[in-house]
Design a binder for these strands. Structure first.
Lengths: 194, 194, 194, 194
DNA sequence: CATGAATGAGTATTCATTCAT
DNA sequence: GATGAATGAATACTCATTCAT
């Protein structure tokens, strides 16, 4: 039994996949519509049937990236109560997704909203869908006196995002990076060790 | 007594300053030779007297960026013996320079070697002049068992570099960010406190 | 009793109406098949069921424009014997139709045959169906010595067509414009007035 | 003795000449930057050194068109006192320039401000530099009761501009067309003939 | 040292048209 | 009759770079 209805969608899915791969690997500006079209097996003009502009194509990729990351995040922390354990799961998901599994997520890390003046707000709004989850998670941590949760969040997200610039498959597993990062920032709960 | 050689140098200095400012603010690809020329008060063609290509202009900026950051680093840690205190000074210098004081350093953080395939090696070599200093400093830290100094270095540099994406003047001082980051990663040596 | 044939025709009528409206308002080149399709509530490809090309669509609009204008003209001058009075009626019809009532007629004035090299002859032939009526009407005028009826026709038609470039609803009525134009060109027959 | 300073200007003059010729012959939209570049003996990109956009190129052509027409107008009516004679001179200049002598003036007639939404105001402002002269000239005519000078102006300018659509060299001279148009609209001064 | 003028390869985008379903 | 998905050729425009002067 054939599924002819699906065919159309597959072409756009392919388009998004290739766009994500190229944006992640080369950057947004460095990737041309020709590059994407060629990779997706269509002509440059054909992209415009699916997406009205290069910017909107990026937004579509961003959207899928955020959605995927959020789903993985939600699934990973679901049912975990301990705040530090939740952070551990989140770091794990973030690093595995960004370093290993999703071009869409890689785009989110590589292409920053403020680098596309025209769509900065839209991209930032999408991004916040994920970053707010991280913020909530960190605000729930019992922190030693003097540590600003916002700064802890900036440090963790910064370190995790920056990993994309130095990580190469084969050196360590993303999970091991996550474990190390957690080890470094994890402080004993206030009063428990002294 | 006039020093005509000096005047020529000034033109190139101005050129580098404006290139650094624009590369830092808009990115390398997003900045055109026209932009730079206009900002430096010359015509596009005139840049080529001083630098053979846009890439080489970036390399020159990078070079000044590394040099400046290294000098500040060396001055800050000179005479400081305690390893954690040395890290504190380094974080301070890094964040103040990148967030507040030098467009050249900002370029180093925003433009990554691997984003310019043609000159990746040259830029990476320059970069290492600074990153090796950080590596040495972290290798000297007495770390709790289980913490990989390389991962600690990646975490610290990542968090520090990423600060450029969220920091806006007026929110906190770079020095305060440095203090918080140090506070988070600094662990008492296992078993001993003194 | 349903008349399905009629429904089909309605779709094409709607298509022609919207094409006429857009060609008149924006010009032929400036109007895209997408614009027309969207205005007519169909997809671009669907236009081609009714008309084989954009050019042929314009020809169809032109045809309706000429036909409508001729009908109005014939009705207006029917039964009027006095040549100047006939010219007055004609001016009235022309200006009211073009300035006020028919997008089809507006297209005839805005889109000139010689602007579409490929179909210039066909459009000119259609146009002549109307212009010949004006010519006949002017040739019947008793003119003062020295006035070339061809030049009078060019003057009148030029002034009337050009009105579309300056006329805006609300400034004067098309009928008043027609009255003024007639007043200006109408000369008493040489020597005789009766 | 060579005049090297002139050379640069000549290229831009050539560019404007060819742009005017093509805009007049084919229309603005129908003329591509490639067409113009090829006609001027340069590459398409080179046009942009002289003019920042196609629209601005048109504005430059328009400007020269208005300027030329105004100069000829001023020279023709200078020292002529009789209002009707002044109108005759003006019609002569207008028709000869537009039909016979200047591609720049032809562009003014063929490309209407309202057809280029983006630059309508700028083009209209330029145009008014000339049309105000005509208005002043017609307002000075002693008209028979009942004739609105504004309508007379619209009629004359419309007829004169529209001449471009039917006039072909060899049929009559522009001067003869001017003479006929004047003859048609010229009314005896109020009360002088009865 | 610097400029004015140009180049040529490339960029995103447009649009009339086609055609299997 | 109509549509969804494409095509392909063209369009205005950009930009690093060159080079005679």
């Amino acid at each position: 039994m054939v599924t002819p209805v699906r065919r159309a969608n597959n072409r756009n899915d392919r388009l998004l996949d290739e766009a994500a791969r190229l944006f992640a690997a080369q950057g947004y500006r460095e990737t041309t519509m020709r590059d994407i079209a060629a990779a997706a097996g269509m002509l440059p003009g054909s992209i415009y049937y699916h997406h009205p502009s290069k910017t909107e194509l990026l937004v579509a990729v961003y959207e899928k990236g955020v959605e995927g990351l959020c789903q993985r995040f939600d699934a990973a922390v679901a049912g975990v109560a301990d705040p530090w354990e939740r952070l551990g799961k989140a770091l794990d998901v973030h690093l595995e997704t960004v370093l290993d599994q999703s071009d869409y997520a890689r785009v989110m890390v590589r292409v920053l909203p403020e680098h596309l003046p025209g769509s900065a707000q839209e991209l930032a709004r999408l991004r916040d869908g994920y970053e707010d989850r991280i913020a909530g998670l960190i605000d729930a941590l019992p922190l030693n006196g003097g540590i600003d949760p916002k700064m802890l969040r900036f440090l963790i997200l910064g370190a995790a995002n920056w990993a994309q610039t130095w990580y190469r498959p084969g050196m360590t597993s993303p999970a091991e990076v996550a474990r190390q990062f957690l080890l470094i920032v994890q402080r004993p709960m206030e009063g428990s060790v002294g």
